[in-house]
């Protein structure tokens, strides 16, 4: 009898939950990808790492012209110098990252020991602090040089975020990021998904909204608007401000989990950072 009640209760819970809340990360990813492949049926999957230029032919012409003399090149060179320059104690980044510098495809990942999502900028600063160096600022400045070099050296690697099944905290972090992505916020009452999933490809003032698929493959990015290279979390901050929400701390829990979810959605896509955007 009690078995029947349990089964009935489980069924009721299952029926009562919205479909998205029950999906596994892999089911989410397939659904996400199908959405874009249906919406832009003429765009091959391997084009999505090019962001908005996968779907905007006029913007693409300008972008290809810019890429002939990439504005992010000096940042790669400076980043290489940073990577090779020893810390005060004589060690280098290579001591923290023996597989480096082409390590961008290993982030973000679930750090079981720390019980949190580990992002590349956070890992770089952990390395600096472990070697008695001051951490770098997360949105502007030298961290972008280092990230540009690492991204450049990681070109051709494939996004492969894992949500390990043996640690429920990893799935919880993924689900937090997913919820963040679909939550309306700010005075304009928009979620990330409203611009980049529902309305990707439409024009907002003079700009075509980029599709979310492939969003994480090309960071850090040289934005003409910034006049410099900036990080993914700087972009998250800008997006939140644009919908008039108070942004969150770069590499704080909210944005780390958001990066975890969003990068997972691009699993299988090639890394091609650093990128150049308007």
């Amino acid at each position: 009898m009690s078995k029947k009640i349990l089964i009935a209760a489980a069924l009721a819970v299952a029926v009562g939950l919205p479909a998205g809340a029950m999906a596994t990360p892999e089911e989410d990813r397939i659904q996400f990808r199908n959405h874009f492949q249906d919406r832009f049926s003429e765009v091959p999957l391997e084009e999505y790492p090019n962001g908005v230029y996968a779907i905007d032919p006029v913007g693409r012409e300008n972008w290809e012209a810019i890429e002939e003399f990439p504005p992010y090149e000096p940042f790669i060179d400076t980043g290489r110098d940073m990577w090779e320059k020893p810390f005060a104690n004589g060690k280098t980044y290579a001591d923290c990252f023996p597989d480096g510098p082409g390590i961008a495809h290993k982030y973000p990942h679930w750090d079981k020991d720390k019980g949190m999502v580990m992002t590349l900028p956070l890992a770089l600063n952990n390395c600096r602090e472990a070697n008695s160096e001051e951490p770098l600022k997360y949105k502007k400045g030298p961290i972008n040089d280092l990230l540009s070099y690492i991204a450049f050296e990681s070109r051709g690697e494939v996004t492969n975020v894992v949500v390990p099944e043996d640690d429920p905290r990893a799935l919880a972090a993924y689900e937090d990021g997913k919820k963040f992505y679909y939550t309306r916020r700010g005075q304009l009452n928009f979620s990330c998904a409203h611009c980049h999933v529902q309305n990707g490809g439409l024009v907002l003032r003079t700009e075509t909204l980029s599709p979310s698929l492939g969003h994480t493959t090309h960071f850090p990015v040289y934005r003409s608007k910034w006049g410099t290279v900036g990080t993914l979390h700087r972009r998250f901050t800008g997006c939140n401000k644009q919908v008039r929400a108070k942004p969150f701390e770069a590499h704080g829990e909210e944005y780390r989990n958001l990066e975890y979810f969003l990068t997972y959605m691009s699993n299988g896509l090639e890394l091609n950072g650093p990128g150049a955007r308007k």
């Binding site: 919205p18 809340a21 916020r185």
Partner: peptide, 24 residues
């Protein structure tokens, strides 16, 4: 008023639901 609305906005979305615009 902004503070009240910001709070209500988040409280109204405590239960996660996948939006209908993802059809697949």
């Amino acid at each position: 008023r902004e503070g009240e609305l910001g709070y209500r906005q988040m409280m109204a979305q405590q239960e996660f639901e996948m939006p209908a615009f993802i059809k697949h």
